[in-house]
Design a protein around this nucleic acid. Sequence first.
RNA 1: UAUGUAUGCUGGACGGCUACCCCCGCCUUGGCGGGGGAGGAAAGUCCGGGCACCCUUCCCGACGAUGUUGGGACAGAAGAAGGUAACGGCUAACAGCCGUCGUCCGAUAUACAUCGGACCGAGACAGUGCCACAGAAACAAUACCGCCAAUCAUCAUGAAUGCUGAGUCUAAAGCUCAGCGUAGUGACAGAGGCAAGGGUGAAAAGAGUGGAGUAAAAGCCCACAGACGAUAUCGGCAACAAUAUCGUGCGGAAAACGCUUACCUGGUGCAAGUCCGCAAGGACGCUUGAUUCCAGCAGUAAUGCUGGAGCUAGAUAGAUAACCGUUGCCAACUUUGUUUGCCGAAGGCAAGUACAAAGUUGAGCAUCCGCCGAAGCCUCGUGCGUAGGCGGACCCUCCUUCGCUCUUCGAGCUUCGGAGGGUACUCAAUUUUGCAGCUAUGCUUCGCAUAGGCAAAAUUGGUACAGAACCCGGCUUAUAGGCAUACAAAAACU
RNA 2: GCCGAAGUGGCGGAACUGGCAGACGCGCACGGUUCAGAGCCGUGUAUCCGUAAGGAUGUGAGGGUUCGAAUCCCUCCUUCGGCA
Length: 114
Amino acid sequence: MLPKKHRLSLRGDFHAVFQGRIKARSGPFRIMCNENNLTYNRFGFVVSLVVSKKAVIRNKIRRRLYAIVQHIFPTLLSGYDCVVWAYPEATELGYQEIEGHMRQMFERIRMLKL
RNA sequence: UAUGUAUGCUGGACGGCUACCCCCGCCUUGGCGGGGGAGGAAAGUCCGGGCACCCUUCCCGACGAUGUUGGGACAGAAGAAGGUAACGGCUAACAGCCGUCGUCCGAUAUACAUCGGACCGAGACAGUGCCACAGAAACAAUACCGCCAAUCAUCAUGAAUGCUGAGUCUAAAGCUCAGCGUAGUGACAGAGGCAAGGGUGAAAAGAGUGGAGUAAAAGCCCACAGACGAUAUCGGCAACAAUAUCGUGCGGAAAACGCUUACCUGGUGCAAGUCCGCAAGGACGCUUGAUUCCAGCAGUAAUGCUGGAGCUAGAUAGAUAACCGUUGCCAACUUUGUUUGCCGAAGGCAAGUACAAAGUUGAGCAUCCGCCGAAGCCUCGUGCGUAGGCGGACCCUCCUUCGCUCUUCGAGCUUCGGAGGGUACUCAAUUUUGCAGCUAUGCUUCGCAUAGGCAAAAUUGGUACAGAACCCGGCUUAUAGGCAUACAAAAACU
RNA sequence: GCCGAAGUGGCGGAACUGGCAGACGCGCACGGUUCAGAGCCGUGUAUCCGUAAGGAUGUGAGGGUUCGAAUCCCUCCUUCGGCA
């Protein structure tokens, strides 16, 4: 879980990210980013009712995404707001596979530090 | 014994590592320390409440006065609309719960009765409607087949008495003949009487048995029995039940109705609403409550009362976790033993059901590819493929050989070639079970006990349903495994 | 969190005042027309059993009321829509 400071919460923040041009996709996940005027990153996750009708499964996917982002947080460049979507196929994946997809997406949008 | 149904309870544990939310304290403005952090259904949203605002009404005050505005209330008329429906109790309230009654079903039983289960369990002599097809008729009735011939009509016959005519002598009477025709008899079934029987249908006028009755019949009448309603008495708070009297010929459907009766509900819902802010948004409401646990008392019970102790999530794109390790539990399988039946001298054959126990730890391990392919499998193709066969790569051991290095009668490394092997498990400990023919020790002998000894085994899968969003009381639905109680009874054995 | 609507062959969609389920259209299959194709015309077309006649099941699932349920009632499932 990320601290509340690093989470996206306001409606306007999400809409600002939707205006961004930095996008990537890997497997059942999609990411969209935009620059903010802060010195740190903020993340938001979208796991809609289409993914699964059971709240337990949706919560587990979101918690895994939070845990992965928290794990690779120090290796990222700063100053971005990001939103990650999950799609129904994500319910079939294990933790290692989700982590692989996430790393691939961050690599494609060149947010990893060298 | 296994299984099913119903009800109630339970719903894994420990540790590592990296993090999140709330509260408290300290230093001090982001760190440290401490404490807490999902459920029986948090779900579905099917009901009921608390709570908040609005509407109406009432009360008080002010004013620009039959209205406006501010405050308060133990308030919610009628109608509409919606809901509930045996009776009593419980409750803040309910479509919930408890108890009782009634009807129906099942088991035991001759029966009474007992046990278990189900029930939207008021009203169809207030009204508007419905009962398809079939059938004569589907509810103030009607008559297809059928039954009857009392009454009317028709036809035939027709006593006594009678009427008319003729004759018998003119008349009358009487007598004879002819005609009419009454009662009666017979025929027919046109009018009519009947609804017992047949047939149709889910249901047929709703009255079952016996008698009387009739032309034939029928609750048309009588006796007995059934159902429903009213009244009285007895039991019960009541629904209801028992008995007696009186009355009623009595179809179904209220899960047809903007139908009746009785009772309940003013409306909207925390996205209610209050406050701050230009706005985005934020704070409050928001967790001390019809609260939890324990004990006692009252009550058949639901439940209530009293006393003591406790504070037990409060997120808001939504925390309570992610990833590992150990272990518990369950199932299958394997092994061992016990088990059951049959034959029998030892012993064997069959069943593989039920029960019990174990399935742990460490070390070593060089194999791989292609083609074919008994068994076996299916999509039935000359497909897949276990054992196995052939070929190749690679590895190990030995021998021969070309060289190199060094601490030089030897060792190591290496090139070419040849032979053999590459078996998928092995070893040790441990645990459990079994064995008792060998050894040691102890006990008084048979023998028993302990320690050694011998044999066997050391796999796989699962661990539910599901995530608070203002809070409670219910209902319904989901739920691996485990526990308890009641009921049912397949199969096997006795 | 709250409120509402729908579910019928392979598809769309009738039958909703209870009374023979699948009208009608599209699609599909077969046959005819044509030298051939399109188009047109005709027949058939839920599932199972049966040579056939015929029988059984079937309106999202389960239960109930009724002589009889796609229709009425109850509980679930799925899908869709609305409210800041």
